[in-house]
Nucleic acid binder design. Structure first.
Lengths: 346, 346
DNA sequence: ATGAAAGCGCTAACAG
DNA sequence: CTGTTAGCGCTTTCAT
């Protein structure tokens, strides 16, 4: 029974009229209020069906003061770790009847502020965000002004928001120590900006591992933001063409693409001439020759956990104090690192 | 002047009151109606600023009967070609003040129907969709019921929707011919389901190229849906362990990961023992050893074009008849294909 | 040029 | 248990 006479959408009023009940009774039935007599309920349900009635989310939002929408702010949707995280979060939120709004800042603060203003007008119930800098006060101000539960991904701010991060410090520390143990003394680090947690923690771990071995770091061998592949490629070329080139490089998955190109251009064999460790697992790291030693974590898990926290805030289950979840990173040894012998040192 | 006395959001009423003008005048100013006296305009603007007034999108949607939201339905957000497309579309739509809602069907028709019903309630202005099957009539029905402009991505339906696709037929045809020219006679094809355009067109091209050379196809060497990597891996293993194993395989980027694993497990060298062509460019195809010959297209471009079409529909610029855009695919020769000699034939 | 009033579609007091 | 009524915040006639 799906004959929809007019082309117009049926409203709850139409349903009430067709079922010969009041507006509120119709509303009650639609909203599963139990206190409606079975007979009336049937009449309403029939009307709903025959009119193909569907509640208007905009009207509901206005009235209920809740949009059942969650914003998701990332720097770039197409960056695989992000898309895996976003995908997992969407999955969980969808199951809880939330709709996800997706916006990309492309790493630009101006854009980010604009996005947050827009999201404010949309009256989101909640937000998942990976801000492009932890130091920008305007962004922080905008986040606070939203006045909704916020979960930060891979970021830390001096604000009472929930956060879920991976243990990039631990991962980078293990990776650096491993290279040091293999005898490497000049190691390059190419990763994201120090203005965001992964970049900051990797630098800190890199420094600490060196310090614990009583070794100095050449600041010239630590590079970032290098957010783009091209930047990473150029940086890697500089590193590899120098007289005292590093014998090993640690790089983010995104940057590693540039590093591999540079290594190929410089005709360096891996791991014989250059040892490599990648932050993040991708198809490439696993299937290339040789397979790359990686610091691995579960991007999807980040999104799942974030969604879970959000939902617990939304239904009031969560304890008031902000949660700060840290997920593990593991060093997975493969074939891209070799011990440093006299020969390979330049 | 950002002192917001109460914690409540200011409404247009508050603004009108503070500026000592009527509701409608305040609204006019906010909506850039030119017919307001400069003095009043200033007063209103000042009030807007001091109250940090921001229009409520839900209320606007309700009143204007337009949500300024565009839905985006894909099977999986984290699948790189999709995320590149979605990212590019979001970019363009954002610039035109639209917000993107993202939902993933995970290839399940039931889920897809549920999503479409939900989107209907959200009263989207428009939709970008990559449905999981071109044959499901319920999905088609739901799409029609939306009664909004729809752009289909990489899909074709017997309905008056705009579509933007890549020339998978052309790409697969060239690729197959290339392998045939190299002397290959038993070629495997592992790609997506024939129920969607890319899978269908690749099969068709594969068949036509063979037919034009007067060659028969072994249907056992054409596999799909194999949407997951594990499926592709299993299929490839079967192919490669058979006595009359194919000397070459064509596979989608997603499936290729499984194929490479299988080739490695079977200790087959590429291209000496097995020639490979991949549908779609990824980091892996370019940087692995040997670099893979690929059928390449621009995923981002698909999203851009789709967004452009959508916007032209939304502002009434587009001509009424549905557009059907086909973007090119190119065969990029690299090092993963070798001529077939007696020795390599099994 | 400005204001008063109606109403988008819905939910939730409040009466009965 | 059911109906009447009052808005949610906004835009838009329609008068003035």
């Amino acid at each position: 029974m799906k004959t929809n006479a007019g082309d117009e959408r049926a409203t709850i009023r139409d349903v009430a009229k067709a079922a010969n009940v009041s507006l509120s009774t119709a509303s009650r039935v639609v909203n599963r209020d139990e206190t409606v007599r079975a007979e009336l309920r049937q009449r309403v349900l029939k009307a709903v069906d025959s009119l193909s009635y569907e509640p208007d989310a905009a009207a509901q939002s206005l009235r209920r003061q809740s949009t059942k929408m969650v914003g998701c702010l990332v720097s770039n949707i197409a960056y695989p770790p992000f898309s895996a995280t976003v995908g997992a979060a969407e999955e969980r939120l969808y199951a809880a009847s939330y709709t996800m709004l997706l916006m990309a800042s492309h790493g630009r603060v101006e854009r980010e502020i604009d996005i947050l203003a827009r999201l404010r007008r949309r009256r989101l119930d909640s937000l998942i965000a990976t801000v492009s800098s932890e130091h920008d006060l305007r962004v922080q101000e905008e986040l606070v002004r939203l006045k909704i539960p916020i979960v930060l991904l891979e970021r830390q701010l001096p604000l009472p928001f929930d956060t879920v991060c991976n243990d990039h410090f631990g991962g980078a520390y293990e990776a650096t120590r491993y290279l040091l143990t293999l005898g490497h003394r000049r190691i390059g680090l190419i990763t994201t900006s120090a203005a965001i947690l992964p970049g900051r923690e990797r630098r800190r771990a890199f420094a600490q591992a060196h310090a614990e071995s009583g070794l100095e770091i050449d600041p010239g061998l630590v590079a970032g933001p290098g957010h783009t592949r091209d930047n990473a490629y150029r940086t890697a070329c500089e590193f590899l063409n120098a007289d005292d080139r590093p014998s090993a490089i640690l790089a983010g998955a995104h940057q590693m693409v540039g590093v591999l190109r540079a290594a190929r251009a410089a005709r360096l064999r891996i791991p014989d001439d250059l040892s490599l460790i990648c932050f993040g697992e991708t198809d490439l790291t696993e299937l290339m020759t040789p397979p790359l030693t990686v610091v691995r974590w579960d991007s999807g898990r980040v999104g799942q956990v974030a969604a879970e926290i959000l939902l617990s805030r939304l239904d009031g289950t969560a304890r008031p104090s902000p949660l700060s979840i840290m997920l593990p990173c593991d060093l997975v040894l493969r074939a891209s690192c070799a011990p440093l012998t006299r020969e390979t040192a330049s």
